[in-house]
Amino acid sequence: MTWFLNKSPTLFERLVEEKKRLELHLGQTGPGSVRTKLLEKLRQVDTATHINEWLSSPGLRAPI
């Protein structure tokens, strides 16, 4: 069985790939509403990355 070798990418890996894709698309887009939406999505992905890092940190403790 080789199913375990084909593991799914982690959330962090998917976010990094999405950020790269958005940055590439952003570099090819001029001013306008499409660029504004790409920048908004890029900020959302960046925020999600930071939240994921925070939730994955070993120092995170449940609230009392």
Score class of each variant (00 low, 15 high):
3 W>V: 11
3 W>H: 08
3 W>C: 01
3 W>R: 08
4 F>T: 04
5 L>G: 01
8 S>K: 15
9 P>Y: 03
10 T>N: 05
11 L>G: 00
14 R>S: 06
15 L>K: 01
16 V>S: 12
17 E>C: 05
18 E>C: 06
18 E>S: 02
18 E>N: 05
19 K>A: 09
20 K>P: 00
20 K>I: 09
21 R>V: 05
23 E>R: 08
23 E>F: 07
24 L>G: 04
27 G>F: 03
28 Q>P: 00
28 Q>D: 09
29 T>L: 06
29 T>P: 02
29 T>N: 02
29 T>M: 00
30 G>E: 13
32 G>A: 00
32 G>H: 03
33 S>H: 08
34 V>G: 00
34 V>Y: 08
34 V>R: 12
35 R>I: 04
36 T>I: 04
37 K>A: 09
38 L>S: 05
38 L>H: 01
38 L>E: 06
39 L>A: 03
39 L>H: 03
40 E>D: 11
41 K>L: 14
41 K>G: 04
42 L>D: 04
44 Q>Y: 11
44 Q>L: 11
45 V>C: 06
45 V>L: 08
46 D>P: 00
46 D>L: 10
46 D>I: 11
46 D>T: 15
46 D>M: 10
46 D>G: 10
47 T>M: 12
48 A>H: 09
48 A>Y: 12
48 A>P: 01
48 A>S: 05
49 T>A: 12
49 T>M: 15
49 T>L: 15
50 H>P: 00
51 I>W: 10
51 I>R: 11
52 N>V: 12
52 N>A: 13
52 N>H: 15
53 E>S: 09
54 W>E: 13
54 W>D: 09
55 L>V: 10
55 L>A: 07
56 S>C: 10
56 S>E: 14
56 S>K: 12
57 S>M: 03
59 G>I: 05
60 L>A: 08
60 L>N: 07
61 R>V: 15
62 A>L: 15
63 P>D: 09
64 I>Q: 15
64 I>D: 15
